[in-house]
Write a protein that binds this DNA or RNA. Structure first.
Length: 933
DNA sequence: GACATCACG
DNA sequence: GACGTACGTGATGTCC
């Protein structure tokens, strides 16, 4: 029987974050012996919890106890002020994986462990403290955070566990110069640099307390600010009134946080010895396990002295693969059994089987699940009965399958449960398939993204390769099941037995890869990259892809017809000029006409022995020869028609009327995204004719397309990374960066700059980013190689930091086998120590990767924050084109959306990286993409 | 399926 | 002294 909280009860509330950080900083970086998982903070946390419970037996002993944690990074305070806590340092790499373990530790001690999405721990503490006080009980808040001091009084005290000092009303007065009732007023004026609360500039705690004590409270002070004698203070309080009142809202704790539990749920409980011992043993805390076992009067469990693993590649011990052991789930009872096991384990590998690769169209055929290595099942859902050529049975569902709706209804609570981790290989695919059936999968882990974070640049990240490499197991190939060519079938035509072996194995492999990769992430130093740049991108991209962009078929169709007509005319002209028929689309045949029939000099052959006729060669010939000019015209139209105006029409989704690209998170080694099916990152823009294709990308009626793009982001990042003061200054002054470079290099004053000189400097600026060579620049500018080399020498002379950056980067790559972005993304450069021409490529790629990769990281960060930033606005993020984000927004919210999106993009590096160069974003709007860009 | 070409940042 | 040479992508058509 539990009693009701009231007089005589004493609630202790532990600020979980404070405990964790103290434990982290108090202890050396210990790691778990068996696998190297960092465990120091968890160890310290457990020690502190254990001591707290056993040492508190006197008059202040708790009758109720809870550890309160923060949850989610976005709270109502971010809505009030988006810079709230914006300058907080990123969490240390080796602490991040320990956070969930501290919650597990609290639960293992059988202490109430509470957190509420969207609220800070301080608000929950405030609410509980007020409830307990109102019920007539005592409260001890275990924290030294001054933000909590506003709660002290009437039986509420704070305990600074570090100094073992209790803080009452007098203690608060000592700290703030006012009693708890007025602490918020003082904080509103003084601000807080740690949480980035602005306050009143120039006023600290001392002055704030003085003013509050003189005028009584903040409202009175602000009302009567005009009476203040000191002119500076008077001006500040008058002019910064809004900022001060905002600051008050930020520091005021919410005492009405909605709680899904009561004070009575926090009653002190004895730990369950088995559970506690199991946890401590799993963490391999030998000393602590023994000490607590002694206290509980039980025998400590034996913790095996497992040797540290030899290499990071050694997979954990796992049972052999056994396709015969996979279960085919036919009914609800069997599925419930699996769901119980999933809930038990708190995690599950999931894989969906579908009728195709286009997630917007493909039908769901079955789902496979795996809870432990070797223990997997397949749930067939929409397999068709009989042979494919069976005229009568072919569209009937096969027997022994659960109704789709019933299976999904059972799975939905699990797939959406916050406490159950869903593991996938390329989870964005499965998430989109399930989203079309009303299931919002979360939280997720993705083995493909883990591999990308650890091994980007080393190899691909497909499941077959990963399984072969890291599990030493070749998966069942899909080819024999589906066939190929004309006779290929879709997965719903695969026999259920075969499907079970194939699909369940995929889930099994995924789980084993996860068990292999998870502990390796921090050893590879990429936990933060995975957690902040990869994993959170999954739902963001899934939403963008599912929303799609409206493309007007009529516009494209009309353009296709116009192109076809022009091309037919050009083709006839070209045949006339050649004096014979030939295929204009064949470079080899064009070359034959030019260099054989017409006998032109200077033709080069490709490595396969065919005539080479790339655009730059034809351009050189075009001044003299009409034929070459017409071939170029033809090729441009051919490209626009086949790749864009024709192909895009086939990508318009029949249901949505929109085009849904698919972004590959792991597609580019540098961290850039890649867009496929269709590629919407290479829609023409550089020529007038091509740009018109963008007119077909339109907003819905009443809406507008917005385009926001980073201005010169890679050059800005180069200026920061290489520390080029002249470039930094030019960006700070908002100068034309290419003109500045030209002026500096060629000694031409800015006001006398010619377009030609500027063009050369621009080519050099870009060349630098790409790992410039005299040959490459010469070809690009069509100048003699010696002259190009002269420009480069001059450039390095004027901006010596560039040379240093290049040399240092290559030296780093040679030593470590990878280079890094400012955010810690690692791009491996396996060829850097190779001999021969390979090395040249690898060197230039190594020089480019930190720059291109940092820019890619920046826009990823912006994209991940964007849904929150535009929350509440009638706006959607549609596309990403490397340095550009495209939005669709209702006409009346254009300005608000531009403001929110620009702020998010320009501040995307903060707080993890403090750039020496500000990022600026240009915005455009219009009814179509051509206008908006 | 490799190659050449060309669209984008 | 020669070698090849701007970075990162995806889609299309030819040719074998």
């Amino acid at each position: 029987m539990t009693s009701t909280f009231g007089k005589g009860c004493h609630l202790h509330l532990i600020d979980g974050s404070a405990f964790i950080f103290r434990a982290y900083h108090a202890l050396p970086p210990l790691t778990r012996k068996s696998d190297g998982l960092p465990i120091g903070a968890v160890s310290g946390f457990c020690n502190m919890l254990q001591r707290y419970v056993t040492d508190n037996h006197g008059a202040d002993a708790p009758t109720h106890l809870a550890v309160i944690f923060d949850k989610g990074s976005h709270t109502f305070r971010n809505d009030l002020y988006d810079l709230y806590k914006a300058n907080r340092e990123a969490m240390p790499e080796d602490l991040r994986p320990q956070i969930p373990l501290t919650r597990a530790a609290t639960e293992a001690f059988n202490i109430a462990c509470k957190e509420i999405e969207g609220y800070e721990a301080d608000d929950i503490i405030a609410t509980l403290a007020v409830q307990a006080r109102d019920a007539g009980g005592r409260v001890t808040i275990v924290s030294s955070d001054k933000d909590l001091m506003q709660l002290v009084g009437d039986g509420v005290e704070m305990l600074d566990a570090m100094k073992n000092r209790r803080i009452d009303r007098d203690g608060v007065f000592e700290k703030f110069g006012v009693f708890p009732e007025r602490v918020v007023d003082v904080q509103a004026l003084a601000g807080d640099s740690v949480d980035n609360v602005p306050g009143a500039p120039g006023i600290g705690i001392k002055t704030a307390a003085l003013l509050i004590n003189e005028y009584g409270d903040l409202d009175t002070l602000l009302e009567r600010a005009g009476e203040i004698k000191q002119p500076k203070r008077r001006q500040t309080l008058t002019e910064k009134r809004d900022q001060i009142e905002l600051s008050r809202k930020l520091v005021q704790l919410d005492r009405d946080t909605p709680l899904d539990f009561t004070l009575d749920d926090l009653e002190l409980r004895d730990p369950d010895p088995d559970r506690l011992m199991a946890f401590l043993a799993e963490m391999e805390f030998r000393t602590l396990t023994r000490r607590i076992a002694d206290q509980l009067g039980i025998d400590p469990p034996v913790i095996a002295e497992k040797p540290a693993q030899e290499t990071a590649e050694t997979p954990p011990e796992q049972p052999p693969f056994d396709a015969a052991a996979y279960e085919c789930v036919h009914d609800a009872d069997a599925l419930r059994g699996w769901i119980d096991r999933i809930r038990d384990r708190g995690r599950v590998a999931v894989d969906t089987e579908t009728t195709g690769l286009d997630e917007m169209v493909a039908g769901l055929v079955g789902i496979s699940l795996c809870v432990d290595a070797g223990s997997a099942c397949y749930i067939p859902l929409t397999h068709k009965a009989g042979a494919t050529d069976d005229l009568f049975g072919s569209d009937q569902l096969a027997e022994g399958q659960m109704p789709l709706d019933e299976a999904l209804a059972l799975l939905k609570p699990v797939l959406e449960d916050d406490a159950i981790l869903k593991i996938g290989q390329n989870m964005k695919y499965d998430a989109k398939i399930l989203a079309r059936h009303g299931i919002d999968v979360a939280p997720v882990d993705d083995t493909m993204l883990m591999s990308y974070a650890m091994h980007g640049g080393e190899h691909g990240h497909g499941m077959d390769f990963l399984s072969d490499t890291y599990l030493d197991h070749r998966p069942i190939p899909i080819k024999p099941l589906l066939g190929s060519g004309k006779s290929a079938i879709t997965f719903d035509r695969v026999a259920v037995d075969d499907a079970t072996r194939y699909a369940a194995e995929d889930a099994d492999i995924t789980l084993r890869l996860w068990e292999t990769f998870k502990p390796q992430l921090h050893r590879a130093g990429v936990t933060t990259v995975y957690e902040t740049l990869e994993r959170p991108l999954i739902p963001v991209l899934a939403q963008m892809e599912m929303h799609g962009i409206k493309v007007d078929r009529d516009t494209l169709s009309r353009m296709s017809n116009a192109f076809a007509q022009k091309m037919a005319g050009l083709e006839a002209d070209l045949h006339d000029m050649a004096g014979r028929d030939f295929n204009v689309q064949s470079p080899a045949q064009v070359g034959a006409v030019l260099f054989e029939d017409m006998g032109l000099e200077g033709g080069k052959k490709t490595k396969t022995g065919q005539w080479s006729t790339p655009a730059n060669v034809l351009e050189d010939l075009a001044t003299e020869h009409e034929f070459a000019a017409r071939v170029l015209d033809y090729r441009q139209l051919q490209k626009l028609k086949s790749t864009y105006t024709d192909a895009l029409q086939t990508h318009i989704n029949a249901e949505t009327g929109r085009v849904h690209t698919s972004y590959s998170i792991t597609g580019a080694n540098t961290g850039r995204l890649a867009s496929t099916d269709p590629n919407l990152q290479n829609i023409p823009v550089r020529t007038e004719e091509g740009r018109r294709i963008r007119e077909a990308f339109v907003a819905e009626p009443g809406n507008v397309l917005l385009s926001l793009d980073y201005s010169q982001i890679e050059l800005r990042i180069l200026a920061h990374i290489a520390g080029i003061d002249a470039l930094k200054a030019a960006f700070a002054d908002g100068q034309d960066i290419h003109a500045m470079t030209a002026s500096e290099m060629f000694d031409v004053p800015l006001e006398e700059m010619t377009p030609e000189v500027r063009r050369r400097a621009k080519a050099i600026n870009f060349g630098v980013i790409y790992g410039i060579s005299g040959f490459g620049l010469a070809r690009n500018l069509r100048i003699p190689r010696a002259e190009a080399q002269g420009f480069i020498d001059r450039y390095f002379e004027r901006f010596p930091g560039i040379r240093t950056y290049m040399d240092d980067t290559i030296a780093f790559a040679k030593e470590h086998g990878y280079v890094q972005t400012l955010f810690g993304r690692r791009i491996h450069t396996p060829e850097i120590n190779a001999k021969g021409p390979h090395a040249g490529f690898a060197r230039r790629a190594a020089i480019n990767a930190p720059i291109q990769g940092t820019a890619a990281d920046v826009i990823r960060r912006a994209m991940i924050r964007m849904p929150d930033a535009i929350d509440g606005l009638p706006a959607r993020m549609l596309l990403q084109v490397h340095d550009e984000l495209l939005f669709e927004v209702a006409g009346d919210a254009v300005d608000a959306t531009i403001a929110a999106a620009r702020r998010t993009m320009e501040g995307a590096a903060d707080p993890a990286v403090k750039l020496d160069v500000k990022l600026t974003v240009d915005a455009g709007k219009g009814s179509n993409w051509a206008e908006a860009h």
